[in-house]
Design a protein around this nucleic acid. Structure first.
Lengths: 146, 146
DNA sequence: GCATATTGCTATCACCGATAGCCGTCCTAA
DNA sequence: TTAGGACGGCTATCGGTGATAGCAATATGC
């Protein structure tokens, strides 16, 4: 017996399922770099914002301060990220040469991954998505801070 | 300093962030029912497919057999779901009266939650989303089975 | 100078997904 | 009719991500 599922008509459900599919595909694409999704995004943000701090990265990616710690630690252990003491509290993050190479490789893979999906959608619909998804993000109920 | 983030132009990233926002909102809306998202979806699928089996629910929701176990257990402990032995292997799942009430309450909350977002999008864009998101889901690379 | 805010950090929890493997049951084909 | 394989539920366990509470050191503004 094949079941009915009225959740199919729920935006949140569709979003969750679609996001899971893309995340799984991304994971596969990045698996042989041994980079987790959260680590790649961190790497790329540092790549385009040299000398940023750890909490700044967290703010732009919506990753809590506490959860940034193991991410940065692992990127440093692997020699992809370096940091320079700034003022006794904060560090300036930069990529090492290996980090830059890794970031370039990751971007290429992400591009392949992305076009696998956008190719199916067509430009018009893709544009609608890039308009709608930020709208959804901006709809956080007012009482939650950054 | 406010950072740049070129990930904003990636579909996967936007999907992930938007999905996270909606999930957080859903969690808030359901928190005083003490139902986790995975439990509500299970409850609703059983509601509209009485006498279905546990793996059938899993298949329609993309939840692995092994991961259904604690979900069903908890729903049964709370007296929301009952099951009847079918053939020594499988059980027929149904909602109890309390489960039906809970499901009705959950649906009402989900509806409030959903319209909070769809109201921001407008009907035309919402329709595009309901066309595009299933397309993305269907783009699983061919080598993965159900 | 002192109260307060900020930064990075530890420790710990919750939720969801995945894998490997067990056991009992069923189905089917030789 | 029975043997082999598929199936349904289950255990145990891990991985990834997010959240919270609280600490120590430092910076900042009054």
């Amino acid at each position: 017996m094949t079941l009915t599922n009225s959740l199919e008509s729920r935006l949140g459900y569709q979003l969750r399922r679609a996001s899971a599919v893309m995340m799984a595909d991304l994971g596969r694409e990045l698996s042989d770099l041994d980079l987790r999704p959260a680590e790649v995004t961190t790497l790329l943000v540092i790549a385009e914002n040299p000398d940023c701090s750890q909490t700044e990265v967290g703010q732009v990616l919506a990753i809590k301060r506490a959860n940034m710690v193991p991410i940065i630690s692992r990127l440093m252990e692997r020699g992809l990220v370096e940091r320079r003491r700034l003022d006794g509290r904060s560090h300036a993050l930069t990529l090492t040469e290996a980090g830059r190479k890794m970031a370039d490789d990751a971007v290429a893979r992400i591009e392949r991954h992305e076009t696998r999906f956008t190719a199916l959608l067509g430009e018009a619909d893709t544009n609608v998505l890039f308009r709608c998804l930020p709208t959804i993000r901006s709809a956080r109920s007012s009482e939650e801070e950054i």
